[in-house]
Computed example of a mutant assay.
Amino acid sequence: MRKNKTTILGIAAMTAALLAGTASAASDPLKAFPPAQEGYERVVINLPQVKDTERFRVQLIPGQTIEADCNTRSLSGEIKKETAQGWGYDYWVVSNVGPGPTTMMACPNNSKVEKFVAVYSDELIRYNPRLPVVVYVPKGVELRYKIWTSPEKATVAKAQ
């Protein structure tokens, strides 16, 4: 009987610790995420509540505003998903941002304008308004995002 009592007390203690961790994450949702490393900034996106989250996705668009000519260009870089240790929450790290591919057209009058140039990524992440979307970007890199949605009903594909 003593062994069962010890086991029950151990389970109760673990449950209390888990609930305390969940409560502290609810009061400070960023507590679960590591601080930004040197040379990086932590950027947080708080998504609005929606009716059907499965119809929504988020696209992360890191980039920089630079003086550029008429050529089409992008930046190279990586967007890597990581998981907060002990919490299981996902966050993203943008790294290796640098010059990327560009077209080589002759521009009239060598004209240049300020424009946002993005790191190309076609990955869409799950929409979860209960947790912040946490992204670590190198200092000097701006993070923009788009929210994508799909129709309520899927279209049926026809065999040909």
Rank of each mutant, 00 (worst) to 15 (best):
P48K: 06
K51L: 12
E38N: 11
P101I: 12
E114Q: 15
E41M: 14
T65Q: 03
V141R: 02
Q59R: 15
Q59S: 13
W87C: 08
T65W: 00
L143I: 03
W148T: 02
G88T: 02
A25M: 07
T6Y: 15
Q85N: 11
K112G: 04
L75K: 13
S27E: 03
K115M: 09
D90L: 02
N96D: 13
Y136K: 08
T6A: 11
A84C: 07
V113Y: 04
S27R: 07
C107G: 14
L19E: 06
V58L: 14
L30W: 13
F56Q: 00
K158D: 10
S27Y: 05
P129F: 11
G63Q: 10
E78G: 06
V135W: 00
Q49S: 10
N109C: 03
I79C: 04
V93N: 08
M105G: 03
N110C: 04
N71C: 11
G63K: 07
V44E: 09
W148I: 08
P62I: 03
V119C: 06
E152I: 10
Q85W: 13
L47S: 00
T15M: 13
F116C: 01
Y40I: 05
A106N: 10
C70I: 07
Y120L: 12
G63C: 13
Y127P: 04
T53L: 00
C107D: 15
C107T: 14
L30N: 11
G21P: 05
I11Y: 01
E142D: 12
V58C: 10
G39W: 10
R42N: 12
G39P: 13
E82P: 02
F33I: 03
N109R: 08
V50H: 01
T15E: 06
A36D: 14
I79V: 12
A16D: 02
K139C: 09
I11W: 02
R57L: 01
I125D: 11
D90S: 15
E114I: 14
Y91K: 14
T149F: 08
E38I: 10
N109S: 11
L19R: 04
T72K: 14
E67P: 01
E152C: 03
W148D: 08
L18V: 10
V94H: 05
K51T: 15
V94T: 04
A36V: 15
M1I: 07
A159Q: 02
W148V: 06
Y40Q: 08
L124E: 10
A20E: 07
N46C: 01
K5Y: 12
S74T: 13
P132G: 02
P29H: 07
S76H: 13
E54A: 09
V135M: 00
Q85S: 15
I79Y: 02
M14V: 14
S111A: 15
K31V: 08
P101R: 06
N71S: 08
P138N: 04
I79R: 04
L30P: 13
T53C: 00
T149L: 04
N4M: 06
I66H: 00
A26C: 05
G100Y: 14
L9G: 06
L19Q: 03
T65M: 00
D52M: 02
M1E: 05
I66C: 01
